[in-house]
């Protein structure tokens, strides 16, 4: 077996953001299901939160290649 531990480290680092993104969209879907008119209000908020949570995973990806 060859390769670096970076890939394993990135896999571990992606767990947190993965859960976070899941929670954000779960809340978004629930909100729209309960109140369909709120969709256009919730959508930007959901995507902003998603962008912030995903940023952590992206930092991990970059570090996996850089280190």
């Amino acid at each position: 077996m060859e390769g670096t531990l970076n890939a394993v480290g990135y896999g571990l680092a992606a767990i947190g953001p993965g859960i976070g993104v899941g929670l954000i969209f779960a809340a978004y879907i629930q909100g729209v299901a309960r109140q369909p008119e709120a969709r256009s209000v919730l959508q930007p908020i959901a995507f902003l939160g998603f962008a912030l949570a995903e940023a952590l995973a992206l930092f991990g990806l970059v570090l996996a290649f850089v280190l």
Partner: peptide, 21 residues
């Protein structure tokens, strides 16, 4: 830091990383 530095960083990295992967 979030508005001035992290935003552009993640905006470009998100697109790049998704296409790369």
């Amino acid at each position: 830091v979030s508005t001035v530095f992290v935003r552009p960083l993640t905006l470009s990295l998100r697109l790049f990383a998704n296409m790369f992967a």
